[in-house]
């Protein structure tokens, strides 16, 4: 479904990613781990379309990935993912309205009622039914991320990108969020890419775990070489532990 072939990304002289060759099938849950500044988030941005590749190719179903974000790729950031001026319900309804053509994306009459009903059922699924009319600033961090996920799913993306979505949450709340994400992933037949700092979380959630690291380092020019996927592991949750080192 997604194929990267000899993918490179530089910013000027600064090489961030180099020689990335991977193929991802539909329905995989991929977790991206690695030290800070190792290009995990850059890779996510390439998939999202806010950054473009420097060399090689990155294709989605055979087509090069669009150079701007679109509804086939949903995103949840660590923060600022929801609209602060809309209530929980409005945030999710907006996701339906934005798929209509038109200048404002406002819905009226029956379509609005239908959209609200649909949104409320999704809001209950993520456990926010009691907070449907609250604004994001009245919610806890975990509830805001639940809302962000519900909103992203409303656009029915094929791919869901998660950029350290639970990085700012308490451990107890994280466990609940893990259950929620796994449930939604199975139900909606999503392909998920999730950046995380937490190796344990990466192993727990992913069907496949990528470790980003720099295989070559020039001590006189630390930015000359970029990071690549040094380990591509199938996690034990799906298959027996397979441990393979990708050829650099």
């Amino acid at each position: 479904m997604i194929t990267a072939h000899n993918l490179w990304k530089h910013y000027g002289d600064h090489t961030v990613l180099e020689r990335i060759n991977v193929t991802v099938d539909e329905g995989e849950f991929i977790t991206l781990v690695g030290a800070s500044g190792c290009g995990k988030t850059t890779f996510l941005k390439l998939l999202l379309g806010v950054e473009s590749i420097s060399r090689g190719s990155l294709t989605l179903s055979g087509e090069p990935i669009a150079s701007e974000p679109g509804p086939d790729r949903g995103i949840v950031f660590q923060q600022y993912s929801v609209f602060p001026h809309m209530s929980v319900l409005e945030n999710v309804v907006a996701a339906i309205g934005f798929r209509q053509p038109g200048l404002t994306g406002f819905l009226f009459g029956q379509p609005k009622k239908d959209a609200e009903e649909l949104s409320l059922s999704l809001i209950s699924k993520v456990g926010l039914q009691a907070a449907a009319h609250k604004y994001p600033h009245e919610l806890s961090g975990g509830m805001r991320q639940r809302l962000a996920i519900a909103q992203a799913l409303m656009a029915k993306p094929k791919i869901l990108l998660l950029d350290e979505p639970f990085g700012a949450l308490d451990p107890g709340i994280r466990a609940d969020m893990h259950t929620l994400v796994l449930d939604l992933w199975r139900e909606n037949n999503l392909t998920v890419f999730m950046v995380t700092h937490d190796l344990k979380e990466g192993f727990h959630l992913g069907t496949r775990l990528w470790v980003f690291d720099k295989p070559r380092i020039d001590p006189h020019a630390p930015e000359a070489y970029g990071a690549t996927i040094t380990y591509d592991l199938s996690t034990s949750r799906n298959t027996d532990v397979a441990f393979s080192e990708t050829s650099p």
Binding site: I75, F83, F98, R99, T104, G105, A152
Partner: peptide, 17 residues
């Protein structure tokens, strides 16, 4: 970015976000 991944066009982003 979020609005774009929800399918919003430029006018919708300006009016609603």
């Amino acid at each position: 970015i979020k609005a774009q991944t929800l399918g919003a066009n430029s006018a919708q982003i300006i009016c609603r976000v």
